[in-house]
Design a protein around this nucleic acid. Structure first.
Length: 215
DNA sequence: CGTTGGATTGGCT
DNA sequence: GCCAATCCAACGC
């Protein structure tokens, strides 16, 4: 018996991608995040791990971006150095998380929208209040809630092997990466800056996970 | 200082 | 398909 690990793919090394990974255009970083592993370390237990399957690029010349109208206290982290976490609160109840990209002062980031939970599903379920694996990390606010990310994590450095980072995992096949318009925005809807793994069941649809007749 | 609406989700019709 | 939940940033006066 070599291993008692669950029968998933090997995770590879759980160490952070370096800052150079993030120091590129959000349009380059976003598709390069698909298949990577989001890793959450807390004081207790093994780390939470999920495979990123969907994200969206935002940039400063982009009317849909929080950074479009300049720096404010809320979006300040977006204008800082790459490789930091930008967490924002919205709709009075939800947090969403981005990784800052590009050069310091640019104001670009990638919104993490959905992931396939791989480790620590029980604790994700406890944080979310549901158990269906497809409802744990499928959607930006769900992902953030499952990972215990909130205002306190705004600005943390994701190139450190601390609270939250992204490990190399296995980049999704280029042939499986699909681009489409971003979700939930009212402007710049013509830009295909949402990137996701085609046919992956953990990608969020505009109305995901509703019971479908015969489905 | 008042108003508006949001990079969402879950529940009901 | 529709809408409430529930806070607060952004903006106009």
């Amino acid at each position: 018996m070599i291993s008692s690990a669950p029968p998933t793919r090997g995770l590879g090394p759980l160490r952070p991608l370096r800052r150079a990974f993030y120091a590129r255009s959000s349009l380059e970083v976003a598709p390069d995040l698909l298949g990577r592993l989001l890793v959450r370390r807390t004081e207790e237990g093994e780390p939470l791990v999920a495979r990123i399957v969907e994200c969206e690029a935002y940039r400063e010349d982009d009317p849909a971006s929080h950074s479009f109208r300049g720096r404010t206290p809320r979006n300040a982290v977006m204008f800082g150095p790459p490789g930091h976490l930008y967490v924002y609160f919205t709709y009075g109840m939800h947090y969403c998380m981005n990784v800052v990209t590009g050069t310091e002062g640019a104001g670009s980031a990638v919104l993490l929208r959905a992931a396939e939970p791989l480790r620590g599903l029980d604790r994700m379920a406890a944080a979310r209040g549901v158990h269906d694996p497809r409802r744990l990390c499928t959607g930006p606010a769900r992902l953030t809630q499952a990972f215990g990310i909130a205002r306190a994590q705004d600005g943390i450095d994701v190139t450190r092997p601390d609270a939250l980072f992204i490990a190399p995992g296995t980049l999704a096949d280029a042939s499986a990466i699909q681009a489409a318009p971003r979700v939930g925005i009212r402007v710049a809807t013509e830009q295909p800056w949402r990137f996701f793994v085609r046919d992956d069941p953990f990608v969020s649809a505009p109305r995901p996970l509703r019971a479908r007749r015969g489905g």
